[in-house]
Simulated scan of single mutants.
Amino acid sequence: MTDRMRTPWAELTLTRFPADPRERLRAWDAADEYLLRQLAETGTDLSGTVVVVGDRWGALTTALAAHRPTQITDSFLTQEATRANLRRASADEDSVRLLTTQDPAPERVDVLLVRVPKSLALLEDQLLRLAPALHKGTVVVGTGMVKEIHTSTLKLFERIIGPTRTSLAEKKARLIHSTVGTPGDRGASPWPYRYELPDDIGPSSGRTVVNHAGVFCAERLDIGTRFFLQHLPEPSGAARVVDLGCGNGVVGTAVALTAPEAELLFVDESYQAVASAQATYRVNEMDGPAEFRVGDGLAGIADGSVDLVLNNPPFHTHQATTDATAWRMFTGARRALRPGGELWVIGNRHLGYHLKLRKLFGNSQLVASDAKFVVLKAVKQ
Rank of each mutant, 00 (worst) to 15 (best):
M1Y: 04
M1A: 04
R4G: 03
A10I: 02
R24F: 12
D29T: 10
Y34G: 03
A40G: 04
A40M: 05
E41A: 12
S47Q: 14
V50R: 01
V51R: 02
G54P: 10
R56I: 10
A59K: 06
L60S: 00
D74P: 05
D74W: 01
Q79F: 01
Q79M: 11
E80W: 13
E80A: 13
A81F: 04
N85C: 08
L86H: 04
S95I: 02
L98T: 12
T101F: 00
E107A: 15
L112E: 00
L112P: 00
L112V: 00
V114G: 02
L122K: 10
R129S: 14
T138K: 04
V141K: 09
G144Y: 03
I149P: 03
T153H: 03
K155Q: 15
R159C: 05
T164P: 03
A169T: 14
A173G: 07
H177W: 13
V180R: 00
S189I: 13
P190T: 11
W191T: 00
P192N: 01
Y195P: 00
E196A: 15
L197Q: 03
I201K: 00
V210D: 03
N211H: 07
H212I: 12
F216I: 10
L221C: 08
L221V: 07
Q230I: 03
P235I: 11
S236P: 08
G237D: 07
A238F: 11
R240H: 15
R240I: 12
V242I: 10
D243I: 06
G245N: 02
G249P: 01
T253S: 15
L257A: 13
A262Y: 07
L264I: 13
D268L: 09
Y271H: 15
A273I: 02
A277T: 08
Q278P: 02
Q278G: 12
E285L: 10
M286I: 13
D287P: 05
D287R: 15
G288P: 02
R293K: 12
D303H: 06
G304T: 04
S305D: 07
L310T: 03
N312K: 08
P314G: 12
F315L: 10
A320F: 14
T321Q: 13
F330S: 01
T331V: 12
T331I: 05
R335D: 06
L343D: 04
W344Y: 15
I346T: 09
I346M: 12
K359Q: 15
L360V: 09
L360F: 06
Q365W: 12
A368C: 07
S369E: 15
D370S: 14
K372W: 04
K372T: 14
V374G: 01
V375I: 15
L376V: 06
K377H: 11
K377S: 13
Q381A: 15
Q381Y: 11
